[in-house]
């Protein structure tokens, strides 16, 4: 591997100081399952890696006044094991389980997955459907960014040089909201998503409200299918309406053709998976299909 220096941060302020000191040649090292691969492949050549894995506070999963805070360093395995995540946001557990394989999930972190900002990232759709926000440490203090605004372009996020993603927060209002995550890959294990989707909704007085549809691998960044969400609002749930939402979501998306699948095939997946995810979210809301 190409030579670099490693500094092991012991706490958050030290991590920020190191990132500031070595900007713009520093990269944050967490699980390493993406960063080290990119360094080995020559896609990135940071001169300094700031290893944040010793910073225990960044891996904490806890309920706060704001909601469920999942530290950026929480591994996908830790999320799967977490009783808090399981109770309040089980769709995040489902999504974590589809990432890589056991070895990747034991090293790879939620924050690391989010900052890759690849369109297919599996950690993204459920937080989108739950109105989550990112808690970011900047040299001059903390800032919060809605996850819907976090991704700017493929492999680009709102994080500025010297900033550190600290946690993903699922707001209190979204805890326990019926949600479903579905992913379609070419295999069950270690497959990138051809399409992934998370849908959430609530039922009040027999009609749907707060419907959210988060989609991955269907556009340059993760997207919400806003038009599809809109037709569900204040309507009684029905298979026909979910089918229509699936068709609209497929129209809203801008999938590409690559060696994994054609755009047309992805559109068909969006249609079917969106419909299924909505039906599953409804079932979890206690409604009938």
């Amino acid at each position: 591997m190409r030579a670099f220096e490693v500094f092991r941060a012991q706490n958050r302020s030290q991590a920020l100081a190191l990132l500031g000191e070595h900007a713009p040649h520093a990269a944050v090292l967490a699980g390493g399952t993406d960063l080290l691969v990119e360094v080995k492949h020559g896609m990135r050549a940071p001169r300094v890696l700031v290893d944040i894995t010793p910073v225990g506070e960044l891996g904490v999963i806890e309920l706060t006044a704001q909601g469920l805070s999942i530290g950026a360093l929480a591994t996908h395995s830790a999320i799967m094991r977490s009783a808090l995540v399981r109770e309040h946001c089980p769709a995040l557990v489902e999504a974590a389980h589809t990432i890589g394989a056991v070895q990747t999930r034991n090293l790879g972190t939620l924050g690391g997955n989010l900052v890759t900002a690849v369109p297919s990232l599996d950690s993204g759709p459920a937080p989108l459907a739950l109105d989550a926000f990112a808690s970011i440490a900047a040299p001059d203090g903390m800032r919060e960014v809605a996850i819907a605004d976090f991704f700017l372009a493929p492999r680009r996020t709102v994080l500025r040089t010297g900033e550190l993603l600290c946690a993903l927060v699922i707001p209190s209002a979204s805890l326990g909201k019926p949600t479903a995550f579905l992913k379609f890959g070419l295999r069950k294990g270690q497959a990138l998503a051809l399409v992934n989707v998370a849908a959430s909704l609530r039922i009040a007085h027999g009609v749907m409200c707060e419907a959210r549809i988060g989609l991955g691998a269907v556009a340059p960044t993760l997207i919400r299918a806003l038009d599809a969400e809109r037709i569900l609002d204040a309507q009684p749930p029905s298979e026909a309406l979910f089918a229509e939402a699936g068709r609209i979501a497929a129209d809203e998306a801008r999938p590409i053709t690559d060696f994994r699948a054609s755009a047309a095939y992805r559109r068909e997946l969006i249609r079917v998976l969106t419909q299924r995810a909505l039906a599953l979210a409804l079932a979890r809301a206690g409604g009938k299909r």
Binding site: G32, T33, L36, V102, T104
Partner: peptide, 9 residues
């Protein structure tokens, strides 16, 4: 925990 030793420094 099982990990890939090639991806841990």
């Amino acid at each position: 925990e099982a990990v890939n030793a090639c991806l841990m420094l």
